[in-house]
């Protein structure tokens, strides 16, 4: 697997790797859906600390989790969105309107 994740109570944190493309997105999708079913996850958190590249597959996997979590009454968050490129993709795709983005303290 090309990424790390952590389950804490009812939240699942996905540590998005340096590049979020279709190859990684399909692994995240499978793992997240399994964890959500297994641990009754209410919040999926995408941690972008390490991420420098993201394409449309990244948008797809985030929107897909929004849709699935919405059905389950849960929510999706993005944290540590500090890379300029990733922020640009987020805004071009209108993700800021759909996903709660928690800015870092020092920003």
């Amino acid at each position: 697997m090309d990424f790390q994740y952590e389950v804490k109570g009812a939240s699942l944190t996905i540590y998005v790797p340096r590049e979020l493309d279709h190859h990684v997105a399909s692994q995240i999708q499978a793992r997240a859906d399994l964890a959500v079913d297994t641990y009754r996850i209410q919040t999926v958190i995408f941690d972008f600390s390490e991420t420098e590249f993201m394409d449309s597959s990244g948008i797809g996997v985030i929107l897909g989790r929004c849709r699935n979590m919405g059905f389950a009454g849960g929510k999706v968050k993005a944290v540590h969105l500090k890379n300029e490129r990733v922020r640009k993709i987020f805004s071009m795709a209108g993700l800021y309107k759909l996903v709660k983005v928690e800015e870092d303290q020092d920003e």
Partner: peptide
């Protein structure tokens, strides 16, 4: 159904 959102060509053009 494969979580595609139709942004690929839009990004290529942008």
């Amino acid at each position: 159904e494969l979580e595609r959102s139709g942004m690929g060509f839009a990004f290529m053009e942008a």
